[in-house]
Computed example of a mutant assay.
Amino acid sequence: MDPRIREHAEIIANHSVDLQEGDNVVVDAHPVAEDLAVALHEVIGDRGANPVTTSQRTGKRQQRAYLRASDDEFETPDHELALIENTDVYIAIRASDNVTQTSDVDPETQAAHRQAHQPILEERLSTRWCLTQFPAPANAQLAEMSTEAYEGFVWDAVNKDWEAQRDHQENMVELMDAGEEIRIVSGETTDVTMSIDGNPTINDHGEHNLPGGEVFTAPQPDSVEGEVLFDMPLYHQGREITDVYLEFEDGEVVSHSAAKNEDVLTNVLETDDGARRLGELGIGMNRDIDRFTYNMLFDEKMGDTVHMAVGRAYDDTVGEDNEANESAVHVDMIVDMSEDSRIEIDGEVVQRDGTFRFEEGGV
């Protein structure tokens, strides 16, 4: 087995989920990620923990079959919820043999299924959880890379000194935590402001998401004003959505468009009331992620990007006296900040053209 896979498994166990003796562990992995699942089981066995392997979340082929045969009416599956209720550690391994496997499933069906599974998502988020990536050939193909090159890209971003990364990102955390209002400007197409007053900034250094490499918080739901063009594509429900444009008034999306698959975007925004508001603002800071790969787990961490998510706000990004945006969805979208762009906190520029003021050559 490639030693980088074993290192990946050790980082998950030691750094991301703090695996302990007696832990009940769910490893949710697509079959093409078998090598990483095997390496994790070796670590789990060595620690005296108890593994169960599923492909419930990542097995897109069987999910497609189920959803296409369904009548669009779903209830929360009690047996799946019971499994997670008895889980201490949940590890999801992204990998695919076909990244567009669910592209012919009706978006409304997928939205209804996702809403029924919201209690299970909530329960997963209460565990020690980690979402990571195995460099499968289909993901390499989507990134327009050879499998070998993509393997190097993934493990360079994952198998790194996460304490050093934490220290680097803490510079931005301190700036955001001291601020009240943040403004994102990029070219003539993006100019949006939002209040982050009282909401803590999270330093993501490879714990829940592996790779990490961002700092993020939640905007106050009613505070978002302006317009954003998300000029990097995203895959959602097996479909590519490009050039997403959102206009906000009093925190709510009042106008939207997309150059491709606008209907998928519309279905996301119509999921529930919270889907038309922002639940997250994230700043990418992982310099080992230096190219776009159509994989949000990596793309949102690039050091010259920001991302915003419509939908659910994470509980730990909402201050005690502030309102949390609630939704069954959380969909991230990315703005390229490498040129003609800036981030301001309370009117002070803290990043210009992708370079932070605390980096060499910064503002």
Score class of each variant (00 low, 15 high):
M1K: 10
M1F: 08
P3H: 14
R6C: 04
H8Q: 07
H8D: 05
I12F: 05
I12R: 02
A13Q: 06
V17W: 00
V17H: 00
D18K: 15
Q20V: 01
E21F: 10
G22H: 04
D23R: 11
N24F: 14
A29V: 13
P31S: 08
A33H: 00
E34Q: 11
V38G: 04
H41Y: 10
V43P: 05
R47D: 03
G48T: 10
V52M: 13
T53G: 00
R57H: 10
S70T: 10
S70L: 07
D71K: 15
H79I: 11
H79R: 14
E80L: 15
E80A: 15
L81T: 10
A82V: 09
L83A: 11
E85M: 09
N86Q: 15
V89S: 00
V89R: 00
A92E: 11
I93A: 06
R94L: 13
A95Q: 02
S96L: 06
D97Y: 02
N98M: 11
N98S: 13
T100Y: 14
T102Y: 03
S103V: 09
S103P: 03
D104V: 15
D106T: 03
D106K: 00
P107N: 08
A112F: 03
A112K: 15
H113D: 08
L121A: 13
T132A: 05
F134V: 06
P135T: 01
A136V: 06
A136E: 10
P137H: 05
N139D: 15
A140G: 03
Q141H: 14
L142W: 08
Y150N: 05
E151Y: 10
E151C: 07
F153H: 14
V158M: 11
Q165L: 13
E170R: 15
M172T: 11
E174W: 09
D177W: 12
I182W: 05
V192R: 03
M194R: 01
M194V: 05
S195G: 00
D197G: 10
G198F: 08
N199L: 03
I202L: 02
N203W: 07
E214I: 06
V215A: 03
T217S: 04
A218P: 01
D222V: 06
V224F: 11
D231R: 04
H236A: 09
E240R: 12
E240I: 09
I241S: 04
I241G: 01
E247D: 05
D250H: 13
G251V: 08
H256V: 02
H256K: 00
K260F: 06
D263N: 11
N267V: 05
L269Y: 09
D273W: 06
G274M: 07
R287Y: 08
D290Q: 01
F292K: 05
Y294R: 13
D299T: 13
K301D: 02
H307F: 06
M308K: 02
V310T: 15
G311M: 04
Y314I: 04
G319K: 01
D321A: 15
N322T: 12
A324C: 07
N325C: 10
S327P: 07
S327Q: 04
A328W: 09
V329S: 01
D332A: 08
D336S: 13
I343W: 06
D346F: 12
V349G: 05
V350E: 01
Q351H: 00
R352Q: 15
D353A: 14
T355P: 03
R357Y: 12
E360V: 10
G361K: 04
G362M: 00
G362I: 04
V363L: 06
V363I: 12
